[in-house]
């Protein structure tokens, strides 16, 4: 999950944030890390560029991008499917 946090920081240009500042279960949007709708699109790009995973159903977005842990779980599950 540490690598994923580093990738999120780079993709979203969160220059004043360190990986350890992001809790595994901390919400990424609104009251958590404060990400916005453009950041959500960038997270989709991150999944495609880094992991070749396409978010098949847009309605899954809020669940998948709820926290670093939910993202990591989604990546793990879909990488297995891709392999």
């Amino acid at each position: 999950m540490s690598d994923l946090k580093t990738q999120i920081i780079a993709q979203l240009n969160l220059q004043d944030t360190k990986p350890e500042d992001i809790g595994d279960d901390q919400p990424l949007f609104v009251d958590g890390l404060g990400l916005d709708s453009i950041d959500a699109l960038e997270l989709i790009v991150l999944l495609q560029q880094q992991y070749r995973i396409k978010l098949s159903n847009a309605e899954d977005g809020p669940k998948v991008f709820y926290s670093v842990r939910t993202m990591a779980e989604y990546i793990t599950a879909h990488q297995v499917q891709n392999n």
């Binding site: 240009n13 699109l41 960038e42 790009v45 495609q48 560029q49």
Partner: peptide, 9 residues
């Protein structure tokens, strides 16, 4: 390669 939403805005 992949259009950047963050740049597009």
């Amino acid at each position: 390669t992949m259009a950047s939403p963050a740049l597009f805005v």
